[in-house]
Design a protein around this nucleic acid. Structure first.
Lengths: 224, 224
DNA sequence: CGCAGGCTTGATGTAAGTCAAGCTGTGTGG
DNA sequence: CCACACAGCTTGACTTACATCAAGCCTGCG
């Protein structure tokens, strides 16, 4: 595993060494505590080393939208670069550790290592693409497609990290899933129960086992 | 206006001169024609010089999500940097012209002008933030809030470009607006009619006049 | 053991979608 | 120059997917 290097997945090995320069500090965040909050000052982005976080936008008066769940190897905070203050909050869903990547250091190291700049661009571009994929989900998919897509996406990312793609623990509550997917917690619960009744998955609280990946993909991809 | 320079709004004037290096080509795109399409090869992003474009994701079989409407001074194509191929399509909504900004040139000029790199990061970060704001819209706002927010957003951007913030022409159809906002064209039409009936706006086909900006903001911001 | 928070399940309500008809403005060919 | 056609828009009647409200049930923890 590369995770000891605190690096985003997919960075070419040739550049790995120099990147250690970027990571000076690590920070631990306890379950439920924020890594940063809306409006706080910003000078860094963070690579998740272990654990998991959620990021969320906060609108006036309790209106809240979860914009992502972040697993090890993923970068948090790229929506606020170039602002003076964070435009979102990040909260640990379990005890976690992140590597601090200071913006100033990106510039400094980037001068010596031009390919770093393009790597950063690539990661930011992926984040744009990821959000836009979510727009498609929220804008034009039905509830069952959203939940199926959510499970498939988690499965795929966990498998990239070396975990099982068919058996895992949800780190987030039904309410958090619902908020992320633009649904209520009841709808999420009902759909998970239905998938289980149909033999597509097995679910007990936060333990998930995918029994029929193809069926799940079919639910996700189905027209109408 | 800065638009002759083909530059994104908000770039500090000190760097403007060097940036001309970045822009070698301009391309015209006729109304309805694509600037690029899903899967086509990529080596550049584009700054809109005049006209307007929409960007869209295309899922299997006619399932399509419009992810943005782009006015002069805005950058199109940042979701695909670092991929070899475009992950979305961009289509002109009227006869338009864009400036071509080659990725290679960003690297080349960026080496001489380090602040360019951070400017690019800032623009990409804004794009992430913009998409995530849309997630909040699609995930947790009601139809009337979405439409009100859409009008306010357009108004604000047009005013930044030096146009009237209260009187403008929609470049997109009801269907395109609906797709973008996760609504049907009928719902969009009904809400525009309702806002007109309530004296908040005047609308006739694609001509919009905002009569009561405060009321529109109230609809947008209202709790529940 | 008992409580609290998270989850499930059912009954009912409603916002927005679907289907359908008619209208309006624009462009085209006789 | 008129009329006809067509695409885009509006409006109404009806349907439906998901939300809301409300019980009751686990299960992990103090």
């Amino acid at each position: 595993m590369l995770s000891h290097l605190c690096l985003p997945i997919g960075m070419p090995a040739t550049d790995l060494g120099k990147l250690d320069d970027l990571v000076k500090d690590r920070v631990r965040v306890e379950k439920g505590r924020p890594l940063f909050t809306l409006g706080s000052e910003l000078d860094a982005v963070y690579a998740v080393r272990f654990g998991s976080l959620r990021t969320q936008l906060e609108q006036s008066e309790g209106d809240l939208q979860i914009t992502g769940f972040h697993l090890p190897g993923e970068i948090v905070g790229m929506d606020s670069i170039g602002q003076h203050r964070h435009v979102s909050s990040a909260i640990a869903m379990e005890d976690s550790e992140v590597c601090v990547i200071r913006i100033d250091d990106i510039d400094r190291v980037g001068r010596l290592l031009p390919s770093l700049q393009s790597q950063i661009r690539r990661l930011m571009s992926q984040e744009i693409s990821r959000s836009q994929q979510m727009l498609l989900t929220l804008g034009s998919m039905r509830s069952e497609q959203r939940v199926a897509g959510f499970l498939l996406n988690l499965s795929q990312r966990l498998s990239t990290l070396g975990y099982s793609s068919t058996e895992f623990i949800l780190r987030m509550s039904r309410e958090e899933i619902g908020n992320y997917l633009g649904l209520t917690l009841e709808t999420v619960s009902r759909l998970l129960s239905r998938f289980a009744r149909e033999g597509i998955i097995h679910i007990h609280l936060r333990e998930v086992r995918i029994l029929d990946m193809a069926a799940l993909q079919q639910v996700f991809g189905q027209e109408c």
